[in-house]
Every structure is written in structure tokens, then in C-alpha cells.
């Protein structure tokens, strides 16, 4: 059992986190295609954004590096992790909030017009027009 855990740890430390983000991405893609409810589709889109953000953040990791807050004596590049993915993803998170807001607004308009946000009732003749 401990051997298995060691193997798992090695796998995750080597390239395994890519697999985990990929699984999250795959779940989100499956949800976006398979769910009939637009709200669930929006949530899956958010999940996809989160997986992309994780994927970028793994690039910033560095063995033996500390937080990118400079200490006076230490100025070498090996001592800190890469600050660039963090700065980029910080803005990406906030923009994902904005896209979620726009998506929610559009969903509310769809609900107004069709009376439902289920896809098969909107595309079929089940939706009642007002």
C-alpha cells in the first residue's frame, strides 16, 4: 500500500497534475455537451475555466522556490517561483466573473421569452411562447 502511495506521489510530482487538470477539463466538456439545462452548461463552462487556470499555474512552479515576494538579501531567480502565470491568472479569474454575469443575464432573458431553460423544450415545440 505504501509503495502504491509512493508511486502515486512520484507520478503526481512528475507530470501527473496535468492528468488531473485534464480530467477536470474532460468532465466539463462532457457536461457542456450532455447537459440539457443551460444553467448547468454555464456551470460547466466555469469549471473549464478553472481547469485552464490550474493548468497555467502548474507552469509557475519551481523546486525550492518560495513565494514571489522579494526578500532583501535574495535576488536570484532560482529562489522564487515564477510570478508571471500568477499575474495573468489573477486577471483571468476576475474576467471569468464578468463572463458569468453576462451569461446569467442572457439566461434570465431566455427564461423570460421561452419560459424555460431546458434545451430540448426550447428547440422542440414544448416551449410556450409568450
Amino acid at each position: 500500500m505504501s509503495e502504491l502511495i509512493e508511486k502515486l506521489e512520484f507520478f503526481l510530482a512528475d507530470r501527473g497534475i496535468y492528468m488531473l487538470t485534464l480530467i477536470l477539463f474532460a468532465v466539463a466538456v462532457y457536461g457542456m455537451i450532455a447537459c440539457g439545462n443551460y444553467m448547468k452548461k454555464l456551470m460547466c463552462m466555469n469549471m473549464m475555466q478553472v481547469s485552464i487556470i490550474f493548468f497555467f499555474l502548474t507552469f509557475g512552479q519551481k523546486n525550492g522556490g518560495t513565494l514571489p515576494v522579494a526578500i532583501d538579501e535574495v535576488l536570484s531567480a532560482e529562489a522564487y517561483i515564477n510570478p508571471l502565470p500568477h499575474a495573468l491568472m489573477l486577471t483571468a479569474i476576475v474576467v471569468s466573473l464578468g463572463t458569468t454575469g453576462v451569461g446569467l443575464a442572457l439566461l434570465m432573458r431566455i427564461k423570460d421569452i421561452y419560459g424555460t431553460i431546458e434545451e430540448d423544450r426550447i428547440t422542440g415545440d414544448g416551449g410556450k411562447k409568450q
Binding site: 510530482a13 507552469f59 519551481k62 523546486n63 514571489p68 515576494v69 522579494a70 535576488l75 532560482e78 522564487y80
Partner: peptide, 30 residues
């Protein structure tokens, strides 16, 4: 993961780390 020599960790990121305090006087590099 964690390799210091990857392309993402090599070029402009190292410049930011080594020169940020000198040029911008902000200790938080992000």
C-alpha cells in the same frame, strides 16, 4: 513540474524576478 529550466521559467520571468525590486520598488513581484 518544478523544473527551473523550462521555457516558461526561463526568459522574461527571470528578468522580472531579478529586476522588479530595483526598477519598480515593489516587493511583491506579482
Amino acid at each position: 513540474i518544478g523544473d527551473a529550466d523550462t521555457p516558461a521559467n526561463s526568459y522574461v520571468a527571470n528578468y522580472y524576478i531579478t529586476n522588479a525590486v530595483k526598477e519598480t520598488h515593489s516587493y511583491n513581484i506579482v
